[in-house]
Structure formats: C-alpha cells, structure tokens
Design a protein around this nucleic acid. Sequence first.
DNA 1: ATTTGTTTTAAACAAGTGTTTAAAATAGTT
DNA 2: AACTATTTTAAACACTTGTTTAAAACAAAT
Lengths: 208, 208
Amino acid sequence: MKKDVTTEEKIKEAARHVFMAKGFAGCSSREISKAAGMNVALVNYYFRSKSQLFKIIFETAMEDFVTSMMTVFSSDQSIENKMRIFIDREFEFLSKHPELPVFIITEMNREEGCSIDHACFFEKIAASGIFNECAQAQAEGKMRKINILSLTLLIMSNCQYPIMAKNLMQGIHGISDEDYTSNLLLHKQNVTEMLVNYLFPINSKTTK
Amino acid sequence: MKKDVTTEEKIKEAARHVFMAKGFAGCSSREISKAAGMNVALVNYYFRSKSQLFKIIFETAMEDFVTSMMTVFSSDQSIENKMRIFIDREFEFLSKHPELPVFIITEMNREEGCSIDHACFFEKIAASGIFNECAQAQAEGKMRKINILSLTLLIMSNCQYPIMAKNLMQGIHGISDEDYTSNLLLHKQNVTEMLVNYLFPINSKTTK
DNA sequence: ATTTGTTTTAAACAAGTGTTTAAAATAGTT
DNA sequence: AACTATTTTAAACACTTGTTTAAAACAAAT
C-alpha cells in the first residue's frame, strides 16, 4: 500500500521548514525528525546524514529560485518589460518564500558548505543569455550603460532586501504584519518606477 | 599591573569575530575561548554565559550601527545632501563590517532572541527626527511623496544588500575579491544617482 | 503460516555542548 | 614574608549532538 504522502517527502518537507527558519547550525536532526513525526534514525535511514539532507534541501531551493527567474528571462518580451515582469514575479515569489534569500546568503557565507557545488546554478543564469541581452540593449542605447554586476545588484537589492529585512523594518517603524504586506505592494511599484526610470530614461514614458 | 589589552576585551574581540562569521548557533563557547587564546571557563567567568556574551556583542554592534547613521542625521545639511552623505558613509561603514547586516537580520529573525530588547535602538533612530524632516521636505515639495517605510527600504536595500550578497554576486558573475570591491565603488555612485534622481526629481540637477 | 524484504523504532555510541567546581597560579597588600 | 583577593586553569558535570546497531513492526509473496 502506497501512502498519499511518502515518508521521504514528509522528511523533506519538515527539513525544508526547519532549515529555512533556523539554518543548518541552528537546528538538530532530532528537531527535524520530530517535526516530521518520526524517529531520528529514520531520517538518517533515508538521507544518510544531516549534511546530505541539507544539501538536497538547499539545492532544490536554489533550483526553485533560479527557475523562477529563468521563466521571465526566456519569455518573449522587450528588455524593459522583462524587467517589470521580473520585479513583479520576484516580489510574489519571495513573499511565498521569505526566508529564502537569507538562507541562500547565509549558506554562501558558510565555510563548511556541505560540499555543495554552487556554480551550476549560476551557470544556468548565464546560459539564459539574459546578460548578453542586456549588453546588446545597452549597445543599442536602449538601456543605461552600467556594468552588469551593478545592474544585477540594483534589481536584487530592491527585490530581496525588503523581504529579508521585514522584522528589522517592522521594528524600526512599528508596523504590523498586515501593514507591512500591504506596504510591500506600494513599495514594489515605487521600485519598479525608480528602476525603469533609471535604466530606461528615454522610452520609460512611452511604454506602459 | 594593567595589561595593554585586558582579558575581557580579548574575549569580546574574539567573540565579535566568531559570532559575526558563524552566528550564535554556528559556534561553540570553546571556539570563542580558543580564538581568544584561553580556557573556556574564563569566558564564563567574565560573562556568565554564551547568551550573555552574545547579547553584549549584538548590542554594541547595533549601537555602532545606529551611531553611524545618527551622525549623518544630526548634521547641518540639506535633506538631499544628508542622503548623499548617508549613502557614502553607509557603504564605507559596511565595507568595514560586512557581516553586520546579515548578523542583525538573522538575529532579528531568531525566536530565542537571547532576551535582547531591540526596541531601544529603533527609538534612537526615530528620536533623531530624521523621519519628521523627511515628512516636512515632502510637504514642501522638495522630496518625492512616498511613505517613510518605502523610503527607508529604498536606501537600506541599495546600501546593505550589495555588501550582504557579496559571495552570491561573486558566484553569479565570477568576480574576484578585488574586482568586487572596486565595482562596489562604481555601484555606490550609481545608487546615489538613481536614488537622488528618484527622490529629488526637481533640483537633482542643480545641486552638486 | 512461514518466509522474505522493507520500514520503523528504541537504545546505544562517542564526541561535543554549555556550565560549574575546586584547585592552581598570579598579583596586591601588609 | 605571609596573607588576601583576583585571575586562570584542568577537570568534571549533565545534557545534546550526529550517527549507528540491532531488534521490532510491517507488508508482500509463497
């Protein structure tokens, strides 16, 4: 008899939650197994070790993250519209996975990296051709000529930080959860307008 | 005989480094004591517990962070110049303390918060009057009318994220440490220009 | 019903955790 | 010099950690 939710999936789901919330070092194997409603030995029976399990969770998280970006990059849109859509999707995606940016950044900074190969994910982004597309748009005078790192930073900063720093911002301004969420929508519009105005100074008024 | 560097300071300095690099859960008391070149018991002799030590480290880090902001806020400058100076200082300060933003954000997200009162730091910021000053500048038409949270986010995002995401960005674009540092200077200029153009659309060309 | 293979558990392992204790080393005072 | 108070250490405490072992529970097949 096959169960509707297999044990392996139960473990992964629990591990995803716990790892995201507390990080690799911030939780124990027993905490994960308890969250999955089972014995400690069982999670090692399926995943051999805590590191191995973490590796899988991190890699699928990264995969989701990159995939979410990729669908926009490979769409049939003008570069400016791609940017608008990207920002929109990024805010939406990150609202559903708020811990993801801190999780990824923390893992990238960790010395003992569970022997995860980060490179393969970055290669996918480069392989999407988005960087070349930007360079071409810049050459054609459609986009402001700033280097590609700065461009990446501008977009990522303004999309990811507002999600990461939620608690910090709520503390500074004394805002409730609901207020923050609604303010985030306004902020998304501000960010979009600011970035488009800055990066596409010429045709930013003509295009919707 | 007083030593040039007291034991207490040695512990704090070591703890600052280790906590910043690995976080509260990511390191052990013995690791800190070893980094300070002494016995484990000694750090507890001075600070009673790991949590207590962390609390002190975090609070002084926060203190430094807020103080760095405050000196700009209370300076005798136009609001636009304050913003320019703030961005400049923020990049400079964070380059010296790159782990600080992640450290603070992670701590803010932690459930067992070592019983740290975060509120007092935020109150200082509000007490500086900077928020009122912005509101007034907006009322006078000197500054674009966006809500104060959005304003805070715009500035913090573009100053802090580029420091936090260094390793991630280096991975994506295959950049060396030195290149990243130099690119950060360019990026700071881009950020400044973009933010000033966006927030002070009228007089952004007149003021240097 | 017995055998087979798989899944789950309780219990144990050695190593590491935060913390404490009691003794040693050091400095300061008389 | 001897005594006191402070600083530092080695050793131990009870507990948690990641991981393994061996036995139990379960399902499938004969």
